[in-house]
Simulated assay, not measured.
Amino acid sequence: MLQDLQIFGFRALWSPYYALFILTLALAYLIIFINRKDSKRVNVEQVLYFYGGLVLLYIIKGSPMDLMSHIMFTAHMLQMALYYLLFPILIIKGIPTWAWRKVFEVPVLKHVLKLLTKPLIALLLFNGLFSLYHIPIVFDFAKANEWAHSSISITILITAFIVWWPIFTPIKEQDKMSPLLKIGYIAANGILITPACALIIFSSEVIYNTYGATGGWIQALALCVPGDVLSGLSLSGPDMFSPLGIVEDQQLGGIVMKITQEIIYGTVLARIFFPWFRSGTDKIDSLPSTHRTEQI
């Protein structure tokens, strides 16, 4: 399939300008956080998280995955799952606590963040906007308008950082949820995102005109393919790049989103549950051996 995509050219496939943006972020992190001589210097784990996040970001937004997300709904849903459910975790854990404190100390912003990062508000905000985005009329409009697409994507990404903050916050005084509440919080996220996936998975009709053969997908391609390249191509429909029918692709996209979400949420749940369970087990005193002997 990648060979078929070569007709769109190098710029559409590998986004050199986005690669430059990623390299700029990498250099800024090196200067601000790594190349320090004081106690504020980041550790190896934080470096791996942050640069891992940048690599993932380029795969999501700079590699052929981004182009495919405008052709196949399955690729779009995989892109969304990685972008909103995994990428924020890596960045949150990659940036040191002192830097996050500065963000939360900005005069006006600190009050907004204090409100939005409350677990219930964060939960409803992210899942509500994610579901709203996948309403057909909203989705098709966003895919046909560059400014709307960018604005909506960035807004949901911000709420994705917010929804993960109560779980991964490095600021101790903000880490107020017990392990049990965190488990319930993640489970609630999984439940709230399910209706949007279910409607997509079980629909027997084409929901999004963007992925139809009537021209909507050409408008979506214009978001990532240079105009001079796109105008010179003869394209019949998305089926020329996909072995799946439109409905099958749509259903598979919902399944991919749900499975990817379950894997990410399940991994986070395991990292919370098992240390909590072990810490509880360690507090249980074993029966003294002398007492057992007396009993025998």
Rank of each mutant, 00 (worst) to 15 (best):
D38Y: 02
R11H: 13
F33T: 00
S63R: 05
L244S: 08
P64W: 08
S69Y: 04
N189A: 09
L27S: 04
Q250C: 10
F104I: 10
T155C: 05
K258L: 13
S234E: 15
H149S: 07
L82T: 06
S279G: 13
G212S: 15
P16Y: 12
L120C: 05
I296W: 11
K37V: 11
W147T: 14
V112D: 00
L123F: 04
L113H: 03
A19K: 02
N35M: 01
Y211E: 08
A26Q: 05
K61I: 04
K182P: 03
I158M: 07
Q219I: 00
P275Q: 01
A187M: 15
I259Q: 01
M1A: 12
L235C: 07
V108G: 11
F161A: 01
L13D: 00
R101G: 06
M72Y: 11
L82R: 06
I284L: 12
I284V: 15
V256F: 15
L67D: 01
L13K: 02
Y17Q: 13
S151Q: 02
L13R: 09
L125K: 09
A99L: 03
W100M: 11
P166C: 14
T293Y: 11
I22T: 03
N189P: 03
L129H: 02
V247E: 12
S153L: 15
R278V: 11
E173S: 15
H111I: 10
K172T: 13
L90C: 06
I167R: 01
G215P: 02
W100Y: 06
F87L: 15
L223S: 07
S231V: 08
L2E: 12
E146K: 15
N145W: 10
D282P: 00
V256K: 07
D140S: 11
I246M: 13
D4E: 14
M177G: 06
S279L: 09
K37C: 08
L230Q: 00
K172P: 07
F141T: 09
L113T: 01
L157E: 05
I296Q: 13
T74H: 08
K176N: 11
Y133M: 14
W165K: 11
I31N: 06
D4F: 13
L244G: 05
V42F: 08
